[in-house]
């Protein structure tokens, strides 16, 4: 193997290494600003997709997940088990809120006879199921928003 060939291999390898770095930066770029081409395809797709998931009215049956649909923790998903779910600012809560309007032990959700019950634990600012304040343990229908401070959660199948 001649010296010239080795030199070319060396330079080529360094170039490929840097090309890898640049390609990685390119992926980050598209991640931040979206792909350069065909952005019009996305908005058309978006409305149709959720429509498939949204039932016309809340379905009957056992919920499997609790999802946070509003507030700073939006997007958090907690899988439901037999264990009760505590919500509040206390760090040992299942859903830890960092919200000035939430109490440290704000509310809890627990399963009973196949349905989930929401109970306010004497919070300062109250827990709302749909539009009404929760004053006694109340069953939660699927897809009905529970509002605690700025946070909105609902149960999903």
């Amino acid at each position: 193997m001649s010296e010239l060939a080795l030199l070319l291999i060396r330079l080529a390898f360094l170039a490929v290494l840097w090309f890898f770095v640049i390609a990685a930066v390119g992926v980050i770029r598209t991640d931040l600003f979206g792909p350069r081409t065909a952005p019009s395809a996305n908005p058309r797709k978006l409305p149709t997709k959720p429509a498939k998931n949204i039932p016309a009215k809340p379905k009957r049956g056992e919920p499997r997940q609790m999802v946070v649909t509003g507030g700073p923790l939006q997007g958090t998903i907690i899988n439901l088990t037999e264990q009760p779910i505590t919500i509040g600012r206390a760090t040992d809560s299942t859903l830890v809120l960092s919200d000035d309007y939430a109490s440290s032990r704000h509310a809890q959700l627990f399963p009973q006879d196949g349905q989930w019950i929401v109970e306010d634990l004497g919070s300062t600012n109250g827990t709302y199921l749909d539009r009404s304040k929760v004053t006694r343990p109340t069953p939660v229908p699927l897809g009905t928003p529970i509002r605690i401070g700025k946070t909105v959660i609902e149960l999903r199948k």
């Binding site: 959720p50 649909t69 997007g75 539009r131 304040k133 928003p145």
Partner: peptide, 22 residues
């Protein structure tokens, strides 16, 4: 994975303003 997962859509859209009755 948790951070990039798109947030779920609210099933009942409550709108921006709300009226709470006592």
């Amino acid at each position: 994975d948790a951070a990039r997962r798109p947030p779920p859509q609210a099933i009942q859209n409550e709108g921006l303003t709300q009226v709470f009755t006592r």
